[in-house]
Structures are given as C-alpha cells and as structure tokens.
C-alpha cells in the first residue's frame, strides 16, 4: 500500500535528511512513527502526501506517485498536520465547502463524529481552541473515508478526555483497507493504539516491528535495584526503581512502555539488532 525505496531527500543538497530510506507499510494497521526532533517525521509524512518531492528513489502510495498530486490519490490520502490551517468558516460550512472534493465523504458519519466530539457545528473554525480544531479536522478526515490517514502530533492540544475519545474513535475506524500513520512525541498517549512501531533516526528507518512481536521477544519489568544482570538489554530509572527490558523468557511482563522502548532503540541499538533481525542502524 505504501512502498518507499531508496528515498533520498534533503532541504539542502549537501545535507540529506533521508538517505536510502526504505519503508513498506501494509493496510489494516495503525503505525506509530517515532523519532527525535528533526529526525524527519513530518517531512516523511509530507513526502507520502506529495507535498514534498524526493530527490531520488521510489515513493509509491496506493499505486500513485504522490508528487503527481492526482485528485484520485489526494481523495484517498488525508493528512492532519501539526500546524493546521482552517479557514474562517463554521464547522458545518467547512464540510459543505470541502466535502465535494471527496467523493466518498460520508455525511452521516461526519454528523456522528461532530456530535461525539461535542463540536458546535455553528462555531467558526478560526475561533475555536486548538483541541477543537483538531477534532473538527479529524471528524472531517475520517468522514472522507480516505484509505491513508496521516496524523502529525495528533494529541497535541487535546485534553485528557479528548485523548481517550481520540484513541477510541481512531481504533473504531481502522479497516482492512486503511492505514493510519501517527507521528508523535507523546507516545504514551497513543501506545495502546499503535500496532506497529517505526523508529526514524539519522535519515533511516532503524526499527519497524509489530507490538505483538515485540511483546513475544522482550520482557518489560521493574527492578528495585540497579540491574547488573547481563541479560538486561536496557534499563532506565523511573519513579520507584528501574524499568528494565530483557529478552523474553521471564514471566509476568509488564505492558510495553513504548517511550522507554524508543529510548532503548535510540541509545542501545546493538542490543536489539540481532534479536529482531532488523537492519538496525548502529552508529
């Protein structure tokens, strides 16, 4: 569904952001795209949507070349970016104005989502809070029935009940033919939603694993003393002790803390390379 091969891209020719980046994403999955600041998460999403053009390499999304920006492609690929532009229209007028561009737009679904998100249909989009804007755009994006939904920092600006609602809504709308890609720093907000974790570092995908596989291969636990066991792949001090990541084989694993797992992958990639048989990039 999304195939990227040998992608090279940089804002300046001598400073490449992506160098020979490969990424293959399958439908029916919610991907969590993680990376440090400036790793290129937003740029990668923009390339997938055809808003940035690769310097070289192949980018194929839904059998389209995104850079051509064909309407049939854009109808099926919707992005909610971190810095949103919303015109001076009401929530309802916005949909009335822009829904005609999306032939699969579902008005009933839109109405339900607007009600569910507790949005005032007559409120002007440029006068509502950031969280409400996000919800309005998410309601619109889901109602377009686009098969690829790209969300850049989707939980920024959402309050705690809204984050919960956001997670449940998104989980309800994933289908076998759809891909959701969530790029975020607030990984704890979304870890219960993510199926597959993708880590972007130094211009490459250094880790791409399904969370079920991760749980099968790793054990997550808490140790009250600093671990000295060589079997510990990574540990990090947390309130009340040390959060440890070991090879699987121990009982009673905790739920994976994706934020600590991300830190582990970034800081100790060699520990995970063999275990996951991935092309973990070791500096």
């Amino acid at each position: 569904m999304i195939n990227i091969e040998k992608l090279r891209f940089g804002y300046r020719k001598r400073a490449l952001l992506f160098e020979d980046l490969d990424l293959h994403l399958a439908p029916g999955t919610i991907y969590g795209l993680l990376g440090k600041n400036g790793a290129g998460k937003s740029s990668l999403l923009n390339i997938i949507q055809g808003l940035l053009f690769p310097d070289s390499g192949q980018v194929n999304v839904l059998s389209f070349q995104p850079k051509d920006r064909e309407p049939a492609f854009l109808q099926d690929c919707f992005m909610i970016s971190e810095s949103m532009f919303l015109p001076n229209l009401t929530v309802w007028d916005f949909a009335k104005t822009y829904a005609p561009f999306y032939p699969n737009f579902d008005w009933e679904q839109y109405g339900q989502l607007v009600a569910e998100f507790d949005l005032d249909a007559d409120a002007r989009l440029n006068r509502i809070s950031l969280g409400q804007k996000k919800k309005a755009l998410l309601a619109f994006g889901l109602a377009t029935n686009a098969r690829v939904l790209l969300l850049d920092e989707p939980t920024n600006g959402l309050d705690i009940p809204s984050k919960k609602l956001f997670r449940s809504t998104l989980a309800r709308h994933i289908r076998e033919d759809r891909i959701f890609i969530l790029s975020t720093h607030q990984v704890r907000d979304l870890q219960s939603l993510i199926d597959t974790l993708i880590v972007l570092e130094d211009g490459r995908i250094i880790f791409q694993e399904n969370l079920v596989d991760i749980m099968e291969r790793l054990h997550f636990g808490i140790s009250y003393r600093e671990p000295e066991d060589p079997g510990v792949l990574y540990y990090e001090r947390v309130p009340g002790g040390y959060y440890t990541i070991r090879r699987a084989g121990f009982e009673d694993s905790l739920e994976a803390d994706v934020e600590i797992l991300f830190n582990a992958i970034i800081n100790a990639p060699q520990s995970f390379r063999e275990l996951f048989n991935t092309q973990l990039y070791v500096r």
Binding site: N46, G50, L51, L74, F78, Y98, F101
Partner: peptide, 21 residues
C-alpha cells in the same frame, strides 16, 4: 493567498484537484 503560509499552502496543495484545475 494560500501559498503564503506553510499551513495554508499544505491545505491548498493537498486539496483533491489537479494542478491544472
């Protein structure tokens, strides 16, 4: 006017219509 800011530019370029339209 949409091309002046990055957010509005993204919105405009991502609208499902051809460049010619």
């Amino acid at each position: 006017w949409e091309l002046r800011g990055s957010a509005s530019r993204q919105f405009f370029l991502a609208l499902p219509a051809t460049n010619l339209e």
